[in-house]
């Protein structure tokens, strides 16, 4: 499965457009990490637990998007975009979306 955020893929031809596919996830860390983060708000610096959280969420979102693309018979997702939002304190939502296509070697 090819995942890319460009519209035209070098060396490949889009033979079929299968429409929009998306994957999203909402994740939170346990309260201990949240307390630690609020202490960090005094001192500043990187919140590595939240960075990990974001990374896991992103992978999960891509994974779900790929599952959906696979289910409709695509072999690639192009023009992928991410959107993030904070829906509550300590929880973050990530949405990955793109166009599912069938690609062929040119």
């Amino acid at each position: 499965m090819l995942i890319s955020n460009i519209e035209l893929v070098p060396g490949k031809r889009v033979t079929k457009h299968l429409g929009l596919v998306q994957g999203s996830t909402v994740r939170a860390k346990h309260v201990g990490k949240d307390i630690f983060a609020s202490i960090k708000n005094i001192f500043g610096g990187e919140l590595s637990s939240y960075t990990n959280l974001l990374q896991e969420s992103r992978e999960e979102a891509i994974e779900r998007m790929m599952e959906q693309a696979e289910a409709i018979g695509a072999n690639g997702v192009i023009n992928v975009r991410f959107a993030t939002s904070a829906i509550a304190a300590g929880a973050s939502e990530i949405l990955a979306y793109g166009t599912a296509v069938v690609l062929e070697d040119r």
Binding site: I3, A37, N41, I42, F43, G44, G45, E46, T51, L53
Partner: peptide, 12 residues
């Protein structure tokens, strides 16, 4: 697809 992310906290 490559990506990089970071979360940075403000200080008081």
């Amino acid at each position: 697809l490559v990506a990089g992310s970071v979360v940075i906290s403000v200080d008081y």
